[in-house]
Nucleic acid binder design. Structure first.
Length: 284
DNA sequence: TCCTCCCTGTTC
DNA sequence: GAACAGGGAGGA
């Protein structure tokens, strides 16, 4: 399930494969994988991929401005991809046929003339692609309301995000409008590292606890990025490689096992509708 | 603010 | 053959 570190890893591995390539065609194989606000993917034809980036859990292909003759119709400057749980982006040789879960195909022409294709595969079909103009992004609630990047925020701003929120700490961390890119894995891992009970009200944290939580969150995210993310079931980077951070989990997926800190059994409960593992002894 | 639904493969 | 995994939309 790609969260911030996994999407960051996909961006880093995909960049050398697609940067400076020109999109020579694009096709949607499953209509529901195209966001309703998206321009038709045909609008991407002829556009050059200037860079690959990330915002929260969104993978972004930044498109260079069109050169030459004026376009007919609006020109997208970005292709955004949300991988959700099972989305994958990988390039293949030109004539590779789509797989059973291929949702979109992007044909690419590299500067050296090499032809290849980028597949968006997504088993559970929760993922989305969206070809966007700046105007479309502003009309997209999810984009417009997306919270700040956790690795770019300071202690003061983080404390302000939690202020006045009566919801459980974990629910607040998962809320993309509060802070972007955190999913179930990194919420549980950072709450354990900070020694905080996931059910606690976010607003009840002391300034010291708030600082501690941000430090834990940033440390967990950075350590995971350094290990190319976590591969639980489906996640692969753009080279098809798995991450290694799943070997460093303290709590995620370890319900009933011994706490790495105190040895007592970890408890598995549901918070905000999500499976949640924590140590009742170490997390208060 | 919380619950249900979407979707499919895996596990019990 | 049911339970489960889970991000986000939409509704209660």
């Amino acid at each position: 399930m790609p969260e911030l570190p996994e999407v960051e890893t996909v961006a880093r591995t995909l960049r050398p494969q697609v940067q400076e390539c020109v999109l020579s065609g694009a096709e949607v194989l499953r209509a529901s994988s195209l966001h309703p606000l998206s321009l038709p993917l045909a609008a991407l034809t002829g556009r050059r991929i200037a860079d690959v980036g990330r915002r929260g859990k969104l993978l972004l292909l930044h498109l260079a401005p069109p050169d030459g003759a004026p376009e007919s119709g609006p020109a997208p400057d970005m292709l955004a991809v949300h991988l959700r749980m099972t989305g994958r982006l990988m390039t293949w040789p030109r004539s590779t046929p789509p797989g059973p879960h291929t949702r979109c195909i992007f044909d690419l022409r590299a500067p050296d003339g090499d032809a290849r294709r980028l597949f968006f595969d997504d088993t559970r079909a929760f993922g989305l692609v969206l070809a966007a103009t700046p105007e479309i992004r502003q009309a997209w609630d999810f984009w417009r309301e997306l919270g700040p990047e956790p690795l770019e925020i300071g202690a003061r701003a983080f404390a302000a995000l939690l202020k006045g929120r009566g919801a459980a700490l974990k629910a607040v961390l998962l809320d993309q409008k509060v802070i972007a890119g955190i999913g179930n894995i990194y919420a549980d891992e950072s709450l354990f590292q900070a020694g905080l009970d996931p059910r606690r009200k976010a607003a009840g944290l002391s300034p010291a606890q708030s600082r501690c939580l941000l430090a834990a969150l940033q440390d967990v995210l950075r350590r995971s990025i350094a290990q190319c993310g976590s591969s639980i079931r489906d996640y692969r980077d753009a080279n098809g490689d798995v991450g290694a951070f799943q070997n460093s989990f303290a709590v995620y997926g370890r319900g009933g096992a011994a706490c790495v800190r105190c040895g007592r059994p970890l408890e598995k409960i549901r918070v905000a509708g999500r499976a949640t593992v924590f140590c009742p002894h170490c997390q208060k």
